[in-house]
Structures are given as C-alpha cells and as structure tokens.
Design a protein around this nucleic acid. Sequence first.
DNA 1: GGGTTTCATGAAAGCCTTTACATTCAATGA
DNA 2: TCATTGAATGTAAAGGCTTTCATGAAACCC
Lengths: 349, 349
Amino acid sequence: MKQVTIYDIAKEAKVSVATVSRVLNDTAPVKGSTRAKIEELIQKYNFQPNAMARSLLKKETGIIGVIVPDLTNPFFPEVFAGAEEEAQQSGHTFLLSNSIGDYAKESEYLSIMREKRVDGVIFLGGRINLKNCDEHLVQELVQHASVIPTVLVNGGLRNTNLIRVATDESVGTALAVRHLIELGHTEIGFIGGESHMTTTSIKLRAFRKTMKDEGLEIRDNWLLPDSFSIDSGKRQMLKLLEMEERPTAVFCVNDYTAIGAIKAATEAGLTIPTDMSIVGFDDIPLAHHFIPELTTVSQQAHELGRMAVQVLKAIMKKEKVKQLTSLAPQLIVRQSTGARSGQKKVSSN
Amino acid sequence: MKQVTIYDIAKEAKVSVATVSRVLNDTAPVKGSTRAKIEELIQKYNFQPNAMARSLLKKETGIIGVIVPDLTNPFFPEVFAGAEEEAQQSGHTFLLSNSIGDYAKESEYLSIMREKRVDGVIFLGGRINLKNCDEHLVQELVQHASVIPTVLVNGGLRNTNLIRVATDESVGTALAVRHLIELGHTEIGFIGGESHMTTTSIKLRAFRKTMKDEGLEIRDNWLLPDSFSIDSGKRQMLKLLEMEERPTAVFCVNDYTAIGAIKAATEAGLTIPTDMSIVGFDDIPLAHHFIPELTTVSQQAHELGRMAVQVLKAIMKKEKVKQLTSLAPQLIVRQSTGARSGQKKVSSN
DNA sequence: GGGTTTCATGAAAGCCTTTACATTCAATGA
DNA sequence: TCATTGAATGTAAAGGCTTTCATGAAACCC
C-alpha cells in the first residue's frame, strides 16, 4: 500500500503542497475553510509526513543515539529512563545499541549513527579505557564528537576534552570505604570490574588512596578485579574464601558483583554482615530488596540520564557547556555492612 | 562544519556522483584508478553517505521500532538483547521507547515511528489489553500494522489477527501451579499483575483452570493482582499475611513480584520455603542469584527477542508467517518452593 | 480613491542519494 | 573492416518535504 504524500493531499484539496505543509507545521496563516479541508484529508488518509524527507531538508532527525555497554545490568535501564524523560520534552527519540563492551561494535554503531545523522550521541558506561585504550576507537570518537554533539556518561578519556557527565566515583568509593573503616574494619578487599575500564581504575585508585589516608594496609591479593557481572562477584568471593587470611569487609565495584559476592559467601556458610561486610555501588532498584538489603553508593542513575540529555541539548544549541558535569554520589547504609565482629560498632556521632 | 556530500567527493575526484555512488555501493564496475582515487577522498574527508537521503529513495530505513512497557524490569532488556542479536545480521538498528504502560505514550510512539518510517515495529510485553482495552489504541495499532510490519510479543488482542510471538503463558502457569500442588500445597494464592493486561488475565485464567482441574478450591481473597513491580509483590504479600487464613504457597505473575513477596514474608519472620512456597515467572538473571534462589518459569527471553525479529523480517520480506509463534516455557525448580510443611515431600517419580 | 499592509496561496528550488537510461570508447569476432 | 559487445562513466529524474520569493486579493489609512 503506497504511503500517501503531501502531494496527494494537496491534489485532493486542490491546493499546493506549500499550503499543506503550512497547516502541517502551522508555519503561516491558512484560511479556515482551506485548513479544515486539508485537516479532514489528513485524517481520512491517516497521513503522516515522511520524517526522512523533512530531516533531509532540516538537517535534524530528532534522534539521539545511545551506546550502552550492557542493558542487562539494571543500572543502565535506569539511566536510560532518566534520559528518556528529559528527551520527551523536546520530542527526541533514541536509537539504542548494546555494545557488550565490544570495541568493534562500538565502532560500528558509531558509524551507523553518523550515517543516520542522529542529532547527538550519548556514550554510556565507562567503557572507554583510560589506558591501554584502543587508539582507533578513541580517535574515531574524538573525530566523531567534532561532527556530532557527544556526551560521555561515566567514562573518561585521557588527553581529550570530550564533554562528560559523571558521578564522582572517587568520592563515592571513598564514602564506601570510610564507612567500612568506621565500622571497625581494617582488612578490606576489592572485588570486580574489568581493570582496563575507566570506572574500575577510578574506583581502584580511590580505594587505594582512602586506605592509605586512613593508614591501612592494602593487600594486593585482596584486589580482585574481574568483570561487572554477578558471576564475577561470586567467583572472586570464592577466591577470597579460599585464602588463609581473608578480609572482614569487601568493596564491590557495583551492585551486581556485590550480590554475587554475598551469594557466594552465604552459600559458603557465612552470614552477612555478621561474618563479613559487603558494600556495592550504583544502588540499583534491587539493592533495596535483596536479602540482606545492600549497603551501596547511589549514583542517581535517573538524574545522570537526565543530565546527559540536558547537556547534549545544550551542545546542540551551541550553548557553552562545562566540560565535566559532576554528580555527587551518596552512601546508602542498609543491611549488608555491619560492625567488625568481635568489636562493637563505632558510633557515628 | 558542513557535512561533505557525494557531490564534493565527485567534484574533487573529477567524476560524476553516479560513479561515487557506485564505489560506495559496489553496484557496478569502476576502473581501478578511479575507484582508488574516490576511496582515498572518502577516507580523507571521512565521508559517510547520508542515510536519510538514501532511505528516502529506497523506502527503507534499517530501523526497527521497539516499544517496551518497562525497561527497568530485567525481563525486557533480556528480550531486547536477543532481538539485537538477530537484528545485527541484517544491519538493523533499534529505535527504543519505554511506554511505562501509558497508553498515550504508546500511541505517541507509534506515531513517531510511522513518521520516521521504521521498517517494522515490535510491541513488547502484554500491555495490550484483552478487555477494557483502549479502543483507540487498538484501532490505531491494527491500522498501523496494516502499513508497517508489526509483531506483538507476549501480548494479544481479541478480534484482531496481529502477528504474535509469545511464550505459552497458560502452560507456564499450569506448570508452576502443578509444581506447588505436587509439593503438597492445596491452599495457593495469586499475586501481582495489572488485571487488565493480557499477561495477567492469561495467567489468572490458567491458574483458575489448573486449580479446578486438580479439584482445589480457589479463594477469591487470595487472588491479588496489583502491578508488576517488586513493591506490588511486597504489598500483596503483606495483605496475605494479615489474613486469618493464608495460603501455604503463592504463584506470582513475575519474578519481580515474587522477589517482593519473599522480601515481605522474610521481613515478617517467615522462612521461605519452609513456611511458604513462592514461585515466580520469567527467570530473570537474578532469579538464580536471589537468596533463596527463585523457583520460576523460564520464558527464554532471549529467544523471544530473536524470534520476534525473525518473524518481523519475514513479514518485511512478504513471506507468509504464522499468526502465532509460540515458545514453550519451562519450569525451573530452585529454592523458593518446598514441600508443604508438616507433610512430606511428594516424590516426583 | 490611490498607496500601503496584511493575508492567503502558488511556483519552484533545494536537501542528498540512487538508478534508469544514454553515451563513449576500446576490444572482439566474422 | 565494420558491426557488436562490454566496460566505464555521465545525465537527469525521482524521492517527499520545507521555504523563499512572488503574486493576487482584501483590508486599511488619510
């Protein structure tokens, strides 16, 4: 069934396409009777102007491209929801791609998005390496950003000045580690995160710094990066449990690994937090419902998404934007952390 | 910075745009030296042909529109991932929208997708009512489907013959309920699901039928639809716990409500499954990691997504497709269900 | 009542590709 | 040697819209 065009409408209404366009966009006065006639026909044929043709002319598509590492991790849908909320007001829609941390795919998607002339791109999730980074992708991204407004969310790139919106993960990590220390823990481990990812290296660095600042020893064999999945949390906790000496508390790079760690520890017969304290990061919706409820660092995922779109829109309007918009994380104390056993809880006031 | 066009390339290479187009699409032989020259220029300017212009001509965009009720429920990202996998092969990308079960939004998104001339639409998640349905949306959807290839995933619509891909939720529900019965339970409740949604009504009907077939009594005040969130599971479990008589087992419409139910029961001092058995639906990744691990019905979310795209592609190619592609669900027995207390477990062989 | 606005509309160019058709030129075959 | 073929390339239309410019008609002012 052939799509009806503005010409068909114009013809049947015995007016020119210009007039139809005018009622469509309400861009100039049209006589009441003419307008009525045209509107009736639009209704009749259920006519929808071809966005392709319009975009071709206006050089804007109303589409924002989003590249996400793993939609399966609840943190990202949350960010996406925030982004969507903000985008709605301006009528933007999202072209979404899951890169699963695969550089080739990220590259490919970036390319598709340029072809499709999206109005802007949001690159989510710290999948951009700080070091060891794939030079090719980086260059591509930088070059790309010079053509299409781009914002990085929770990802950074040394030596580039790409616009970013990010949680201050350093502060968040410090918050979590200090919380453990205040509970009396001195032997603390670190679990999860691919070590060449921005987010991991930021957290690891902050972890080290906080420990050092507090005068605590860092045991290298308790530093166990892996990936961001639940299973990786399990895996590394298992490793920890096999050691002769093990920490009394663990910082996990995200809630998924924290859940995995708790699961493994529980299965091994430990009670959380009595036998071991575990803190996560992100505050995914489930953190609050897991048993035990997760102590974690909230990233305000929703807000992060909103901000990303807000900043992106600003760039599109050629407004001046800060290179980095930083969101403050917040420690959420729940049930998975407790005083170091054999030691009474340090009061916090 | 003005985007470079095929004209710019042609001009600098001293050939016509047709020739450039030919090397771009490899659609006709081009002399080696000419090709080299053109390719060099494409490289130099990092030229990407404008997909908009191409689509306008070819009448296909390579975009599939996806409408999801709630991306925040882990089931949907899983489906999406499957869809993406299948779409990748044919180079399709996704325009994703979260409707949050809001009819106005669904309608709006549908409209946007038509404007954007997506090649097809996947409508996810049983948000289409069987009864009490918003006539307007239904008509719109049906009409829409006559213009753009459309597939409904886990949603049905009485009196329409829209193409569907769905888990057999009736069978799944029966599987779960029979499992409870085999464990010795005779007093079984039903929690969650908005009652005007397809998925809820299918499950509720199957629940009733199975109970009846097995000669068990259905207590209306143990039938507690609500929504699909964790909180709704909590809420309804709380209600159940306040009753004088309460069931010994509960079927939940999805894993999220099951998790909520378990949480509430646990907080109230019950032990799952000793004091109460709870079964979910979906088998989200977390089901396997929750404590206790969730007994649930697997929907093969990933496969569902793949199938949806497969069927959609078939429709696009004008191939004949079945009106309903049904996927078999599978009962996954884990830790949240057990023999009715005070009664020994019924052996299953 | 003639000049100036304002309103309502039309004609046509332009956005960037692809592609059907036309053209040129060299090689092939009888 | 001349017609035929095939390769390499060019020309121009089409795809569906927006928008500038132009025009005619009606309304306004003094």
